[in-house]
Design a protein around this nucleic acid. Structure first.
Length: 595
DNA sequence: GCCGTTTTCGGCCCGACTGTTTTCAGTCG
């Protein structure tokens, strides 16, 4: 899929804002430092757990603290008295004395060295102590010296060198459209390999996380050696890092690491469960297991000393008295409790989607004419499709002014005459929310549209209050139906901007304005945790591809994946409703949905 | 450092692989 990055890159300026992410980074780094210092693994884990909690916390720690003080901070899972006090200090002073002090107790390079695969805290510290290296580049030179030979055995030195090369060659986390074809190619190669019974991609790819670090594949086969060979000798493999009887690790030509695990057929269910993760989900599941007399591992479940094995993953959860948990929910965010109560949501599926309400044609920065998009939408079986070209403020996108909106109308009408029996074509715009909060087209134009999306495309560097004001202002405008890509992030390029989400969600709920889950794979905006929170606050959501050419309609499934990870069902999503209901929603919003 | 339908103390998920380990530590998932 030709997913290119659109729009200019606006890096977030450091605003000295203590965000959840910033707090999480500090806590995680404290955990790393404690580990290097040889502190109790449980203490280390405590900081990491808390960091993880902050990362997935939907609302800002700042708002939480403002509303309920330290007590509210302690409600966050994994945050107790000590960490709550540290978060408070960070929020109120922007600094943390403990962190600054502890950071001085180890050489700065040590943390960096642990990024090398195969090098953990112990090795990193020894490298830094004995060789006195200041950087990874330094280490690369020093590892072949006699000094290094005195302290490290040949095999260890080789391992470190391999690790450095690996770190260089790896591409870091990649978005789903990069990871999926790689996985598909290797899975298909394995399916064609003699003796292979079952193959599945697992890990974050199966959970449909927005980015993937490495690709994990599990395989059941009658001939492990052969399967390993099929995998490791595949033409797309750049380098084989490890190759044993039961597993292999390779680097794909695109720089993504791929792990294959060969597993016995009769344990396939447990292995699938184990390698799908997430780690947090498995830890939570096993902790629950211990409390209830089960010892859960990737080989099966022990109860009273007897091991029960599972060839089907559904049986693993059933044995524990739980509903099967869809992979997208396995993030330790309440899914285990819900599965025990048999109260998991019925998640939205791609086939529930009845139309796409955000996309562009050649009238702005799209690459295809309205008709091409409409035909693709008909092929997908959609009941409706909107074309929402940019407004004039977006000069780079050749946005529409009032006159060109009128010109476009003639083309819309022509396409309707041709395809009106098969699909509803909605005439819309994506109107820019300008820096001063005003919309970029006059109300007189907006009120003639079937659907209006309002989005921010500039002045990302404003304060939290200004940005919140802009979003809430757009929501309150009677002509706006949808708030487009609300958080403004671009994966790997630009962080989401800081906004009082609570206010935005409440305003959206109050006015019936839908918040978008933009399915474009480098946006996925709103992200899962925010979308879940939005619904909890009573807001409705819409999943749009933001297409710029007809084939982009296929990106819908990435948006659906975000919605599933946000625990959304069909009823929570406006474009999962049939035309009559969508039209009623648009009418409710004070607009004649005329077609 | 966190946490509590047995616990405010004493637990904290489970296992594989690798190296130079002759009984285990380090790293990873």
């Amino acid at each position: 899929m030709g997913v290119s990055v659109r729009g200019r890159v606006h890096r977030n300026r450091a605003r000295g804002d203590v965000t959840n992410r910033k707090i999480a980074q500090v806590l995680a780094e404290i955990g790393d430092i404690l580990e290097i210092k040889g502190e109790s693994a449980f203490r280390v884990a405590a900081y990491r757990n808390a960091a993880r909690s902050l990362e997935v916390l939907p609302e800002g720690a700042r708002e939480r603290y403002r509303a309920g003080g330290v007590k509210a901070l302690r409600q966050i899972p994994g945050v107790g008295a000590s960490i709550a006090a540290k978060i408070e200090e960070l929020l109120t002073t922007g600094r943390l004395a403990y962190y600054e002090q502890i950071k001085k107790t180890i050489p700065a390079v040590t943390l960096d060295l642990t990024r090398i695969p195969g090098v953990g805290p112990k090795t990193a510290q020894k490298l830094s102590d004995t060789l006195g290296v200041k950087s990874i580049a330094d280490l690369e030179r020093a590892i072949d010296t006699p000094l290094a030979a005195r302290h490290f055995r040949p095999r260890t030195r080789e391992r470190i060198k391999t690790g450095i090369g690996l770190l260089r060659g790896l591409s870091g986390r990649v978005i789903l459209p990069v990871a999926e074809p790689i996985a598909r190619e290797l899975v298909e190669a394995l399916r064609g390999c003699p003796g292979v019974l079952k193959v599945d991609p697992v890990g974050s790819l199966r959970r449909m996380r927005e980015t993937v670090g490495d690709i994990d594949i599990v395989c059941a086969t009658e001939n492990a050696r052969r399967a390993i060979e099929c995998f490791a000798s595949h033409p797309s493999v750049r380098e084989v890092l490890a190759k044993g009887d039961a597993k292999a690790t390779v680097v794909h030509a695109d720089g993504v690491q791929v792990d294959l695990e060969i597993v016995p057929r009769e344990e396939y269910g447990s292995l699938l469960q184990h390698f799908t993760g997430s780690k947090q989900h498995n830890v939570a599941l096993r902790t629950w297991g211990v409390e209830h007399g089960f010892s859960i591992s990737e080989h099966g479940i022990k109860r009273g000393g007897r091991l029960v094995r599972f060839d089907d993953e559904r049986e693993v959860y059933r044995f524990l008295g739980m509903e099967w948990i869809p992979p997208e929910l396995r993030e330790d965010q309440g899914e285990i409790e819900a599965a025990l109560r048999h109260a998991l949501p019925r998640l939205i599926e791609e086939r529930d989607i009845a139309g796409d309400l955000h996309g562009h044609s050649t009238w702005s920065d799209g690459r295809e004419a309205i008709e091409a998009v409409v035909r693709a939408a008909i092929e997908r079986g959609y009941a409706y499709i909107a074309v929402t070209d940019h407004s004039r403020g977006l000069g780079v996108a050749h946005g529409l002014d009032a006159a060109r909106v009128a010109e476009r109308h003639a083309e819309v009408e022509a396409v309707r005459r041709k395809y009106g029996a098969k699909i509803r074509l909605l005439e819309g715009v994506e109107v820019d929310i300008r820096a001063d909060g005003r919309l970029d087209l006059p109300d007189a134009v907006l009120e003639r549209m079937d659907v209006v999306i309002a989005s921010i495309h500039s002045a990302f560097g404003q304060t939290r209050e200004q940005l919140t004001r802009r979003l809430v202002g757009a929501i309150e405008n009677l002509h706006v139906d949808i708030l487009g890509h609300p958080s403004g992030r671009l994966l790997g390029e630009r962080d989401e901007y800081g906004v009082e989400w609570d206010e935005v969600f409440r305003a959206a709920a109050r006015h019936g304005t839908a918040l978008e889950i933009n399915a474009f794979p480098n946006r996925l905006d709103l992200k899962d945790t925010l979308a879940r929170e939005a619904r909890r606050r009573g807001a409705r959501l819409v999943i749009d591809t933001d297409f710029h050419e007809a084939r982009h309609l296929d990106l819908m499934r990435y948006g659906v994946a975000v919605a599933r990870r946000a625990w959304l069902g069909k009823d929570d999503v406006v474009n999962a409703q049939p035309w009559r209901e969508l039209a009623a929603w648009l009418r409710e919003r004070g607009r004649g949905a005329r077609r």
